[in-house]
Amino acid sequence: MRAIFAALHLGGDYADIQLGIGFLGVALAFGLTVLTMAYAVAHISGAHFNPAVTIGLAVGKRFEWKDVPAYVVAQVLGGLVAGAALLAIASGKDGFDRVGHMAANGYGVNSPGGYSMTAVLIAEVILTAFFLYVILGATDGRAPTGFAPIAIGLALTLIHLISIPVSNTSVNPARSTAVAFFNGDGAPGQLWLFWVAPIFGAVIAGATYALFAGNDTDITGEVSHADRERRGA
């Protein structure tokens, strides 16, 4: 929402002038949204708002594959409803033109900084993998309890600070889908990248996390206290 309403960025000779909350504010808005919602609903659904996260957690054996389709459908539908709501609100201002102004993700001419398809693809893969590593680490049975939403929200903030100029930041196929079709202006045709790259990055993280972090065991090789509790030991 803040990316559409509050982060005004001028073009032409004034391309470096930002008004409103700017990129920093947008990054914080995304991160704080995930942080607060994780505390609000993690005990209900695990706070999955992102198909890439759900798939990455399933690859990492932290989530049941049988539940993945329902989660992904819910995430995409929720995103589309949110996108429609944003369009309805934004259209309440005289002169608003949705085409090219719905904070859609893109590459080439649709990248805020004019980055190429290859550059955007690499950035989205790496940043989504980083995001999943943080999620997997913060929710590991050996990690301090109660702080996972803070780590995850701050990680998402950092990701946006890095990549808003590159792609408008996706790392979330549902977020990209939510506004692509309302935005138009080439966004629907480029949407495939913002599904493929985040999911690929998430799969990399899910498949490799245990290789360097190990399972939920302490340094002596004994099963951790948190893991024993989960297993009922």
Score class of each variant (00 low, 15 high):
Ala88Asn: 12
Ala88Leu: 15
Ala88His: 08
Ala88Asp: 04
Ala88Arg: 12
Ile89Gln: 08
Ala90Lys: 14
Ala90Gly: 07
Ala90Pro: 03
Ala90Val: 06
Ser91Glu: 07
Ser91Trp: 02
Ser91Ala: 10
Ser91Asn: 13
Gly92Leu: 08
Gly92Val: 08
Gly92Asn: 03
Lys93His: 13
Lys93Asp: 00
Asp94Tyr: 05
Asp94Met: 02
Gly95Ile: 05
Gly95Ala: 03
Gly95Ser: 09
Phe96Cys: 06
Asp97Ser: 08
Asp97Trp: 00
Asp97Gln: 11
Asp97Met: 02
Arg98Gly: 00
Arg98Asn: 14
Val99Ala: 12
Gly100Thr: 09
Gly100Phe: 08
Gly100Trp: 10
Gly100Ser: 05
Gly100Pro: 08
Gly100Met: 03
His101Lys: 10
His101Asp: 02
His101Thr: 01
His101Asn: 15
His101Met: 00
Met102Cys: 00
Met102Asn: 03
Met102His: 06
Met102Glu: 01
Met102Ile: 03
Ala103Lys: 01
Ala103Ser: 12
Ala103Ile: 05
Ala103Asp: 06
Ala104Arg: 05
Ala104Lys: 01
Asn105Leu: 02
Gly106Ala: 01
Tyr107Gln: 05
Gly108Ala: 03
Gly108Trp: 07
Val109Asn: 08
Val109Trp: 00
Val109Cys: 00
Asn110Leu: 13
Asn110His: 09
Ser111Tyr: 08
Ser111Leu: 05
Ser111Trp: 07
Ser111Arg: 05
Pro112Gly: 03
Pro112Gln: 04
Pro112Asn: 12
Gly113Ile: 12
Gly113Met: 07
Gly114His: 09
Gly114Glu: 07
Gly114Val: 10
Tyr115Phe: 15
Ser116Glu: 01
Ser116Asp: 05
Ser116Lys: 07
Ser116His: 11
Met117Lys: 06
Thr118Val: 15
Thr118Phe: 15
Thr118Pro: 00
Thr118Tyr: 10
Thr118Leu: 15
Thr118His: 10
Ala119Ile: 07
Ala119Asn: 13
Ala119Met: 14
Ala119Ser: 13
Val120Leu: 01
Val120Ser: 07
Val120Thr: 10
Leu121Tyr: 14
Leu121Ala: 15
Ile122Ala: 14
Ile122Gly: 02
Ala123Leu: 01
Ala123Tyr: 09
Ala123Ile: 13
Glu124His: 06
Glu124Cys: 09
Glu124Lys: 15
Val125Cys: 11
Val125Gly: 06
Val125Arg: 13
Ile126Ala: 15
Leu127Pro: 09
Leu127Ser: 01
Thr128Met: 10
Thr128Asp: 06
Thr128His: 04
Ala129Pro: 13
Ala129Cys: 15
Ala129Glu: 06
Phe130Glu: 03
Phe130Cys: 14
Phe130Val: 14
Phe130Tyr: 15
Phe130Ala: 13
Phe131Cys: 08
Phe131Gln: 09
Phe131Val: 12
Phe131His: 11
Leu132Ser: 04
Leu132Phe: 12
Leu132Thr: 10
Tyr133Gly: 04
Tyr133Glu: 06
Tyr133Leu: 15
Tyr133Asp: 01
Tyr133His: 14
Val134Gly: 05
Val134His: 07
Ile135Ala: 08
Leu136Glu: 14
Ala138Leu: 03
Ala138Ser: 10
Ala138Cys: 06
Ala138Phe: 10
Ala138Gly: 04
Ala138Asp: 07
Thr139Met: 04
Thr139Ala: 02
Thr139Gln: 04
Thr139His: 05
